[in-house]
């Protein structure tokens, strides 16, 4: 049976892991390769490395980092942040990334999704969608949530599939950072609207939140960052709990 996946996300700045403290500042959380390897050893199913600086001059640092991650880690990983062209993608995949994640660039130029899918296959194209409810409509936001677009989230997700996306990483801005559970409403709506895997992100605070997402929606994977980094939930503990709830989870 296909298992539900637990994904840990690491934010990267200038080659180091960073994490926010109460949404105010960010501090260095160490070497992303070591942290990723630790999570992999603990049984996380996939890793996402998100370059939050992603300026052109920092690109080389990121590529070098991806090479090291690929050498060290024996599970799939996705790299995102600042990808604007097919050449950017080629560089990351050649360095060893399994998938890439695009967000603002896909909204600005949906053809980019098709170009990447045609050249490297849909399986490596994750489109990250930041969604927020405004005036009772779910809208897509870009530029790290700073800019509202014209897109309704469901329509945009369907567009992404048509353009060749292999997976959708759906982050609820309403829930992100709240630790009061994943946004089950929009997560299930997207799952019903499209026929490719969906990752839920934003709002994870307890083990029960993961169970609820897997039981009440058809989501394929749940992603979290800070609760893992701060040690609030350990991955083995989470996976044991989900298995006890009869959710199909990888335990080897």
């Amino acid at each position: 049976m296909l298992k539900k996946r637990i994904i840990a996300c690491l934010d990267i700045q200038e080659g180091r892991t960073v994490k926010g403290i109460n949404f105010k500042g960010i501090r260095d959380a160490g070497d992303p390769v070591e942290l990723g390897a630790k999570y992999a050893a603990q049984g996380v199913d996939e890793l996402v490395f998100l370059d939050i600086t992603a300026t052109i001059e920092k690109r080389k640092t990121l590529i070098e980092l991806v090479r090291k991650i690929s050498t060290t880690i024996n599970i799939p990983f996705t790299v995102g942040g600042g990808i604007r062209s097919v050449d950017d993608v080629a560089e990351l995949l050649n360095a060893g990334a399994d998938k890439i994640s695009i967000n603002s660039a896909a909204v600005r130029n949906p053809e980019l999704i098709r170009q990447i899918a045609n050249r490297f296959g849909s399986q490596c194209v994750v489109v990250a969608i930041d969604t927020k409810q405004t005036d009772q409509r779910e809208k897509v936001f870009i530029k790290g949530g700073r800019e509202e677009t014209q897109w309704e989230t469901i329509n945009w997700a369907q567009q992404c599939v048509d353009y060749g996306a292999g997976e959708i990483l759906l982050t609820s801005m309403n829930k992100d950072g709240t630790k009061d559970g994943f946004d089950l409403g929009i997560t299930q709506k997207i799952n019903e609207a499209i026929s490719i895997p969906v990752i839920a992100s934003g709002g994870a605070g307890t083990k029960q939140h993961f169970a609820e997402a897997f039981q009440k929606t058809q989501v394929d994977a749940c992603l979290a960052a800070s609760i893992f980094h701060f040690g609030e939930i350990s991955i083995p503990e989470l996976k044991t709990y989900l298995t006890q709830q009869n959710i199909p989870i990888r335990c080897n």
């Binding site: 296909l2 298992k3 539900k4 199913d45 026929s195 490719i196 895997p197 394929d220 994977a221 990888r250």
Partner: peptide, 11 residues
């Protein structure tokens, strides 16, 4: 296309 494609993940 009865279910999600690609078949992606651990099995």
């Amino acid at each position: 296309k009865d279910r999600k494609v690609p078949h992606m993940g651990w099995n």
